[in-house]
Protein backbone atom coordinates (compact mmCIF):
# COMPACT_ATOMS: atom_id res chain seq x y z
CA UNK A 1 0.00 0.00 0.00
CA UNK A 2 2.76 2.40 1.00
CA UNK A 3 4.50 1.58 -2.22
CA UNK A 4 1.42 2.50 -4.24
CA UNK A 5 1.12 5.79 -2.37
CA UNK A 6 4.75 6.73 -2.94
CA UNK A 7 4.50 5.79 -6.59
CA UNK A 8 1.38 7.87 -6.96
CA UNK A 9 3.12 10.81 -5.31
CA UNK A 10 6.14 10.39 -7.56
CA UNK A 11 3.94 10.31 -10.60
CA UNK A 12 2.03 13.45 -9.61
CA UNK A 13 5.28 15.22 -8.73
CA UNK A 14 6.78 14.36 -12.09
CA UNK A 15 3.60 15.34 -13.89
CA UNK A 16 3.55 18.71 -12.16
CA UNK A 17 7.17 19.32 -13.13
CA UNK A 18 6.30 18.53 -16.73
CA UNK A 19 3.44 20.99 -16.51
CA UNK A 20 5.80 23.72 -15.32
CA UNK A 21 8.07 22.96 -18.25
CA UNK A 22 5.36 22.97 -20.85
CA UNK A 23 2.80 25.54 -19.72
CA UNK A 24 4.80 28.40 -21.23
CA UNK A 25 5.20 26.51 -24.47
CA UNK A 26 1.47 25.83 -24.66
CA UNK A 27 0.78 29.55 -24.54
CA UNK A 28 3.44 30.33 -27.16
CA UNK A 29 2.56 27.46 -29.46
CA UNK A 30 -1.16 28.13 -29.26
CA UNK A 31 -0.91 31.79 -30.06
CA UNK A 32 1.97 31.86 -32.51
CA UNK A 33 1.61 28.40 -33.99
CA UNK A 34 5.34 27.93 -33.57
CA UNK A 35 7.07 25.00 -31.98
CA UNK A 36 9.69 26.86 -29.98
CA UNK A 37 12.71 24.57 -30.09
CA UNK A 38 14.54 26.93 -27.79
CA UNK A 39 11.97 26.53 -25.02
CA UNK A 40 14.17 24.09 -23.14
CA UNK A 41 17.08 26.52 -23.55
CA UNK A 42 15.11 29.09 -21.57
CA UNK A 43 14.57 26.42 -18.94
CA UNK A 44 18.35 26.01 -18.80
CA UNK A 45 18.93 29.76 -18.68
CA UNK A 46 16.54 29.95 -15.72
CA UNK A 47 18.59 27.39 -13.81
CA UNK A 48 21.90 29.11 -14.58
CA UNK A 49 20.61 32.60 -13.77
CA UNK A 50 19.22 31.30 -10.49
CA UNK A 51 22.52 29.61 -9.71
CA UNK A 52 24.41 32.82 -10.41
CA UNK A 53 22.08 34.88 -8.22
CA UNK A 54 22.15 32.24 -5.49
CA UNK A 55 25.94 32.56 -5.24
CA UNK A 56 25.46 36.22 -4.43
CA UNK A 57 22.37 36.34 -2.28
CA UNK A 58 20.71 32.99 -1.86
CA UNK A 59 18.00 30.95 -3.46
CA UNK A 60 14.95 33.09 -2.79
CA UNK A 61 16.06 36.18 -4.65
CA UNK A 62 16.97 33.90 -7.56
CA UNK A 63 13.48 32.43 -7.49
CA UNK A 64 12.10 35.91 -7.92
CA UNK A 65 14.60 37.47 -10.32
CA UNK A 66 15.74 34.65 -12.59
CA UNK A 67 12.35 34.09 -14.28
CA UNK A 68 12.03 37.83 -14.87
CA UNK A 69 15.49 37.93 -16.45
CA UNK A 70 14.68 34.93 -18.62
CA UNK A 71 11.41 36.57 -19.64
CA UNK A 72 13.40 39.68 -20.57
CA UNK A 73 15.72 37.63 -22.77
CA UNK A 74 12.67 35.99 -24.29
CA UNK A 75 11.09 39.34 -25.13
CA UNK A 76 14.34 40.52 -26.72
CA UNK A 77 14.45 37.37 -28.83
CA UNK A 78 10.89 37.91 -29.97
CA UNK A 79 11.34 41.62 -30.59
CA UNK A 80 14.64 41.50 -32.48
CA UNK A 81 14.49 38.06 -33.98
CA UNK A 82 11.28 36.12 -34.32
CA UNK A 83 9.18 39.12 -35.28
CA UNK A 84 11.29 39.70 -38.39
CA UNK A 85 11.39 36.07 -39.33
CA UNK A 86 7.62 35.64 -39.02
CA UNK A 87 6.90 37.03 -42.47
CA UNK A 88 8.88 34.13 -43.98
CA UNK A 89 6.45 31.61 -42.50
CA UNK A 90 6.25 29.12 -39.68
CA UNK A 91 9.09 26.93 -40.88
CA UNK A 92 11.48 29.87 -40.79
CA UNK A 93 10.32 30.78 -37.30
CA UNK A 94 10.77 27.24 -36.11
CA UNK A 95 14.23 27.01 -37.61
CA UNK A 96 15.16 30.30 -36.01
CA UNK A 97 14.41 28.82 -32.59
CA UNK A 98 16.35 25.71 -33.66
CA UNK A 99 19.39 27.90 -34.32
CA UNK A 100 18.87 29.73 -31.04
CA UNK A 101 18.96 26.45 -29.16
CA UNK A 102 22.35 25.62 -30.75
CA UNK A 103 23.72 29.04 -29.84
CA UNK A 104 22.47 28.88 -26.24
CA UNK A 105 23.93 25.43 -25.77
CA UNK A 106 27.34 26.75 -26.82
CA UNK A 107 27.12 30.08 -24.97
CA UNK A 108 26.18 28.66 -21.60
CA UNK A 109 29.37 26.58 -21.17
CA UNK A 110 31.38 29.61 -22.34
CA UNK A 111 30.09 31.52 -19.35
CA UNK A 112 29.65 28.85 -16.70
CA UNK A 113 31.98 26.08 -17.87
CA UNK A 114 31.30 22.66 -19.31
CA UNK A 115 30.88 20.86 -15.99
CA UNK A 116 27.77 20.96 -13.84
CA UNK A 117 27.49 23.89 -11.41
CA UNK A 118 26.84 23.34 -7.68
CA UNK A 119 23.35 24.84 -7.60
CA UNK A 120 21.98 23.50 -4.33
CA UNK A 121 18.58 23.22 -2.72
CA UNK A 122 18.22 25.93 -0.01
CA UNK A 123 18.79 24.72 3.55
CA UNK A 124 15.20 25.57 4.56
CA UNK A 125 13.84 23.11 2.02
CA UNK A 126 16.28 20.29 2.61
CA UNK A 127 15.30 17.08 4.29
CA UNK A 128 12.37 14.73 4.18
CA UNK A 129 8.73 15.75 4.40
CA UNK A 130 7.72 12.27 5.51
CA UNK A 131 8.85 8.73 5.05
CA UNK A 132 6.92 5.77 3.74
CA UNK A 133 8.18 2.23 3.76
CA UNK A 134 11.79 3.38 4.02
CA UNK A 135 11.52 5.78 1.09
CA UNK A 136 11.68 9.44 2.02
CA UNK A 137 9.64 12.09 0.27
CA UNK A 138 11.77 15.26 0.13
CA UNK A 139 10.40 18.64 1.20
CA UNK A 140 11.76 20.15 -1.99
CA UNK A 141 9.56 17.93 -4.08
CA UNK A 142 6.55 19.12 -2.11
CA UNK A 143 7.67 22.70 -2.73
CA UNK A 144 7.98 21.93 -6.43
CA UNK A 145 4.45 20.57 -6.54
CA UNK A 146 3.08 23.56 -4.67
CA UNK A 147 4.83 25.95 -7.05
CA UNK A 148 3.44 24.14 -10.05
CA UNK A 149 -0.10 24.21 -8.70
CA UNK A 150 0.38 27.88 -7.80
CA UNK A 151 1.49 28.51 -11.36
CA UNK A 152 -1.62 26.84 -12.73
CA UNK A 153 -3.86 28.88 -10.43
CA UNK A 154 -2.08 32.13 -11.25
CA UNK A 155 -2.19 31.47 -14.99
CA UNK A 156 -5.82 30.55 -14.82
CA UNK A 157 -6.51 33.72 -12.85
CA UNK A 158 -4.65 35.94 -15.27
CA UNK A 159 -6.22 34.36 -18.32
CA UNK A 160 -9.80 34.49 -17.09
CA UNK A 161 -9.92 37.46 -14.72
CA UNK A 162 -7.79 40.18 -16.32
CA UNK A 163 -8.28 42.23 -19.43
CA UNK A 164 -4.98 41.21 -20.99
CA UNK A 165 -5.81 37.62 -20.17
CA UNK A 166 -9.08 37.83 -22.00
CA UNK A 167 -7.38 39.35 -25.02
CA UNK A 168 -4.76 36.60 -24.96
CA UNK A 169 -7.45 33.98 -24.70
CA UNK A 170 -9.21 35.50 -27.63
CA UNK A 171 -5.96 35.56 -29.59
CA UNK A 172 -5.44 31.90 -28.80
CA UNK A 173 -8.51 30.99 -30.78
CA UNK A 174 -9.07 33.87 -33.20
CA UNK A 175 -5.91 35.95 -33.66
CA UNK A 176 -7.18 37.69 -36.81
CA UNK A 177 -10.37 38.82 -35.16
CA UNK A 178 -8.45 40.27 -32.20
CA UNK A 179 -6.25 42.23 -34.55
CA UNK A 180 -9.31 43.44 -36.42
CA UNK A 181 -10.72 44.71 -33.15
CA UNK A 182 -7.76 47.05 -32.90
CA UNK A 183 -5.56 45.34 -30.36
CA UNK A 184 -1.82 45.55 -30.79
CA UNK A 185 -1.27 41.89 -31.47
CA UNK A 186 2.52 42.20 -32.01
CA UNK A 187 2.90 43.68 -28.54
CA UNK A 188 0.69 41.03 -27.02
CA UNK A 189 2.75 38.43 -28.82
CA UNK A 190 5.96 39.85 -27.41
CA UNK A 191 4.53 39.90 -23.88
CA UNK A 192 3.20 36.41 -24.31
CA UNK A 193 6.55 35.13 -25.56
CA UNK A 194 8.26 36.83 -22.63
CA UNK A 195 5.71 35.35 -20.25
CA UNK A 196 6.03 31.88 -21.73
CA UNK A 197 9.80 31.92 -21.54
CA UNK A 198 9.63 33.30 -17.99
CA UNK A 199 7.56 30.26 -17.04
CA UNK A 200 10.24 28.04 -18.58
CA UNK A 201 12.79 30.03 -16.58
CA UNK A 202 10.82 29.44 -13.38
CA UNK A 203 10.77 25.72 -14.13
CA UNK A 204 14.55 25.96 -14.54
CA UNK A 205 15.01 27.75 -11.21
CA UNK A 206 13.12 24.96 -9.47
CA UNK A 207 14.21 22.04 -11.63
CA UNK A 208 17.88 23.07 -11.78
CA UNK A 209 18.66 22.13 -8.21
CA UNK A 210 16.15 19.31 -8.00
CA UNK A 211 18.12 17.67 -10.81
CA UNK A 212 21.48 18.70 -12.26
CA UNK A 213 22.36 22.11 -13.69
CA UNK A 214 24.69 21.52 -16.62
CA UNK A 215 24.97 22.56 -20.27
CA UNK A 216 23.10 19.63 -21.76
CA UNK A 217 20.09 19.98 -19.46
CA UNK A 218 18.17 21.68 -22.25
CA UNK A 219 18.82 18.83 -24.65
CA UNK A 220 17.84 16.30 -21.99
CA UNK A 221 14.35 17.80 -21.72
CA UNK A 222 14.19 17.05 -25.40
CA UNK A 223 10.93 16.85 -27.20
CA UNK A 224 8.87 15.82 -24.20
CA UNK A 225 7.47 19.34 -23.89
CA UNK A 226 6.22 19.20 -27.47
CA UNK A 227 4.58 15.89 -26.74
CA UNK A 228 2.68 17.41 -23.83
CA UNK A 229 1.54 20.41 -25.82
CA UNK A 230 0.41 18.29 -28.75
CA UNK A 231 -1.29 15.64 -26.61
CA UNK A 232 -2.97 18.29 -24.46
CA UNK A 233 -4.28 20.12 -27.47
CA UNK A 234 -3.70 23.50 -28.97
CA UNK A 235 -4.79 26.48 -26.92
CA UNK A 236 -5.69 24.53 -23.86
CA UNK A 237 -3.91 25.09 -20.57
CA UNK A 238 -6.15 22.49 -18.99
CA UNK A 239 -5.21 20.04 -21.72
CA UNK A 240 -1.53 20.60 -21.04
CA UNK A 241 -2.15 20.03 -17.34
CA UNK A 242 -4.02 16.82 -18.00
CA UNK A 243 -1.40 15.63 -20.49
CA UNK A 244 1.41 16.36 -18.01
CA UNK A 245 -0.24 14.33 -15.28
CA UNK A 246 -1.04 11.56 -17.73
CA UNK A 247 2.51 11.34 -19.01
CA UNK A 248 3.90 11.59 -15.48
CA UNK A 249 1.71 8.66 -14.48
CA UNK A 250 2.51 6.71 -17.63
CA UNK A 251 6.25 6.99 -17.08
CA UNK A 252 6.20 6.37 -13.34
CA UNK A 253 3.85 3.41 -13.39
CA UNK A 254 5.55 1.80 -16.37
CA UNK A 255 8.71 1.76 -14.26
CA UNK A 256 7.13 0.42 -11.10
CA UNK A 257 4.71 -2.13 -12.53
CA UNK A 258 7.47 -4.37 -13.84
CA UNK A 259 5.51 -6.27 -16.45
CA UNK A 260 6.67 -7.40 -19.86
CA UNK A 261 5.15 -6.51 -23.16
CA UNK A 262 4.03 -10.12 -23.48
CA UNK A 263 2.01 -9.89 -20.27
CA UNK A 264 0.27 -6.73 -21.44
CA UNK A 265 -0.57 -8.25 -24.81
CA UNK A 266 -1.92 -11.38 -23.18
CA UNK A 267 -4.53 -9.19 -21.51
CA UNK A 268 -5.93 -8.30 -24.91
CA UNK A 269 -5.54 -11.82 -26.20
CA UNK A 270 -2.43 -11.39 -28.35
CA UNK A 271 0.79 -13.28 -28.07
CA UNK A 272 4.30 -12.73 -29.31
CA UNK A 273 6.60 -15.41 -30.66
CA UNK A 274 8.12 -16.82 -27.49
CA UNK A 275 11.80 -16.56 -26.73
CA UNK A 276 12.41 -13.58 -28.99
CA UNK A 277 13.81 -10.30 -27.80
CA UNK A 278 10.43 -8.71 -28.32
CA UNK A 279 8.76 -11.07 -25.87
CA UNK A 280 11.28 -10.17 -23.18
CA UNK A 281 10.81 -6.41 -23.55
CA UNK A 282 9.55 -4.94 -20.30
CA UNK A 283 7.49 -1.83 -19.79
CA UNK A 284 10.38 -0.38 -17.77
CA UNK A 285 12.39 -0.39 -20.95
CA UNK A 286 9.60 1.22 -22.93
CA UNK A 287 8.66 3.79 -20.25
CA UNK A 288 10.56 6.75 -21.73
CA UNK A 289 9.11 6.20 -25.21
CA UNK A 290 5.50 5.70 -24.13
CA UNK A 291 4.82 9.46 -24.42
CA UNK A 292 5.80 9.34 -28.09
CA UNK A 293 3.56 6.35 -28.63
CA UNK A 294 0.75 8.27 -26.98
CA UNK A 295 1.44 11.29 -29.15
CA UNK A 296 1.40 9.32 -32.39
CA UNK A 297 -1.80 7.57 -31.35
CA UNK A 298 -3.48 10.84 -30.39
CA UNK A 299 -2.42 12.53 -33.60
CA UNK A 300 -3.81 9.71 -35.68
CA UNK A 301 -7.04 9.25 -33.75
CA UNK A 302 -7.76 12.75 -32.48
CA UNK A 303 -5.50 15.32 -34.14
CA UNK A 304 -6.74 18.23 -32.07
CA UNK A 305 -5.42 16.68 -28.85
CA UNK A 306 -7.19 15.81 -25.63
CA UNK A 307 -8.78 19.19 -24.99
CA UNK A 308 -7.76 21.24 -27.98
CA UNK A 309 -10.16 23.82 -29.30
CA UNK A 310 -8.90 23.71 -32.87
CA UNK A 311 -6.56 21.81 -35.11
CA UNK A 312 -3.25 23.36 -35.98
Amino acid sequence: MDFVVITLLNSVAYGLLLFMLSSGLTLIFSMMGVLNFAHASFYMLGAYFAYQISTWSGFWLGLLLAPLLVGGVGMLVEWHGLRHVRRFGHVAELLFTFGLAIVFEELVPLIWGKASVPYAVPAQLEGALFSLHGAAFPIYKGFMMAMSLGMLAALYGVLTRTRIGLIIQASLTKPDMVEALGHNVPRITMLLFGGGTALAGLAGVIGGNAFVTEPSMAASVGFIVFVIVVVGGLGSLGGAFLASLLIGALQTFSVTLDVTLQQVLTLIGLSLPADTNLARVSLVQLGPVLPYLLMVAILILRPRGLMGVRES
Partner: peptide, 21 residues
Protein backbone atom coordinates in the same frame (compact mmCIF):
# COMPACT_ATOMS: atom_id res chain seq x y z
CA UNK B 1 17.05 -5.65 -13.11
CA UNK B 2 16.00 -2.46 -14.88
CA UNK B 3 17.19 -0.95 -18.09
CA UNK B 4 16.09 2.47 -19.25
CA UNK B 5 16.57 4.51 -22.42
CA UNK B 6 19.89 6.37 -22.14
CA UNK B 7 19.63 10.09 -21.38
CA UNK B 8 15.83 10.05 -21.44
CA UNK B 9 15.00 9.72 -17.75
CA UNK B 10 14.67 13.02 -15.93
CA UNK B 11 13.38 11.82 -12.60
CA UNK B 12 14.80 8.59 -11.22
CA UNK B 13 12.48 8.68 -8.18
CA UNK B 14 10.32 5.76 -9.38
CA UNK B 15 13.39 3.61 -9.96
CA UNK B 16 14.75 4.50 -6.55
CA UNK B 17 11.48 3.77 -4.76
CA UNK B 18 11.50 0.41 -6.49
CA UNK B 19 15.05 -0.23 -5.29
CA UNK B 20 14.09 0.70 -1.74
CA UNK B 21 10.97 -1.44 -1.87
Amino acid sequence: DDIHAPGKVKDFAPYVSKIIA
